[in-house]
């Protein structure tokens, strides 16, 4: 595909036609905050934290989904951009428990001076009890920023099981199974691909949840080893997260050509047999 030339923060850049402003920003090493974007998922452009100012446009545009066009003039650090990014982070953090988000997210909060407390104390939040309804993973929607990633991973972008969707509307919009039934009554097949893409810790291995509750979760003691799933012949690459000689979580690299980060229930959760040290058969 052809290249187009555009200007970002006063610098001219070449970008491939069909690529996004975000791609171009990344190539220029401009750190752009993103929450709902993932390279393996179709952009939903809902979080709006990545917005940039495009000359001639009435409103800011989402860098993660807006395609580059020749001659675009873009500013990524204007007052308007900083304001909207700050507000998005503040609004989110004022309604959601973002304490398990990556350090990167905290970095953006600092950079834009987000002060979520300033809306006051008596504000609506999504706080609610953790949903623990099976032995494999838990859902803590008080941490959910509604980035739609889990829905996409469960749906068209990977798993195509559609066990979860967005239900409700407005501030009441939330991730839900049909009629909010528990996972065992839902269509869920426990592939854990939703967990794999969740950026907030709202979806979590039960092992991690329990260890956190017990105070034994310690990432500094964990190793991550790449290997291949022991089951079928597809050859999915696994990342085994091991703490004290126990597997505590399984992921797959997003950029792996076989999996794109996605697994099935066996690869994701079927590891117990190497840690039950009794004889069986």
């Amino acid at each position: 595909m052809a290249d187009v030339t555009l200007t970002i923060d006063g610098r001219e850049v070449q970008a491939r036609e069909g690529s996004t402003i975000l791609d171009a920003c990344r190539r220029m090493r401009i750190d752009t905050p993103t929450l709902c974007q993932l390279d393996t998922l179709t952009p939903v452009n809902v979080c709006r934290v990545c917005v940039v100012e495009l000359e001639g446009a009435r409103v800011l545009v989402p860098a993660c989904s807006r395609k580059v066009e020749a001659g675009m003039k873009i500013r990524t650090d204007s007052e308007r951009v900083r304001h909207s990014r700050r507000l998005v982070l503040e609004l989110l953090a004022s309604s959601v428990d973002m304490s398990l988000c990556s350090p990167q997210v905290r970095g953006w909060m600092d950079r834009y001076g987000a002060a979520p407390g300033r809306f006051g104390k008596q504000v609506a939040t999504v706080a609610q009890p953790v949903k623990v309804d099976n032995d494999l993973y838990v859902r803590d929607y008080s941490r959910c920023i509604l980035c739609y990633k889990c829905v996409e991973a469960c749906g068209v972008d990977a798993q195509n099981t559609f066990a979860i969707g967005v239900a409700g509307r407005g501030f009441d919009a939330h991730i839900s199974t049909e009629f909010d039934v528990g996972l065992p009554d839902s269509a869920c097949v426990y592939c854990g691909n939703c967990i794999g893409v969740c950026p907030t810790g709202a979806l979590m291995f039960k092992s991690e949840h329990d260890m956190r509750a017990a105070g034994t979760w310690d990432e500094s003691k964990q190793t991550v080893t790449e290997t291949v799933c022991p089951y079928c012949g597809v050859g999915c690459m696994l990342e085994l997260h091991v703490q004290e000689n126990s597997i505590v979580k399984v992921t797959s690299p997003l950029d792996h050509s076989v999996t794109s980060g996605h697994l099935c229930v066996k690869g994701r959760f079927g590891f117990e047999f190497v840690q039950r040290r009794g004889a069986k058969g």
Binding site: V46, V88, I145, G168, G170, F171
Partner: peptide, 16 residues
């Protein structure tokens, strides 16, 4: 009430 709820500025902004 009428915000569709997908984007943060509107979903949380209208509530705030």
């Amino acid at each position: 009430d009428e915000s569709c709820g997908q984007c943060v500025p509107c979903r949380v902004g209208t509530a705030r």
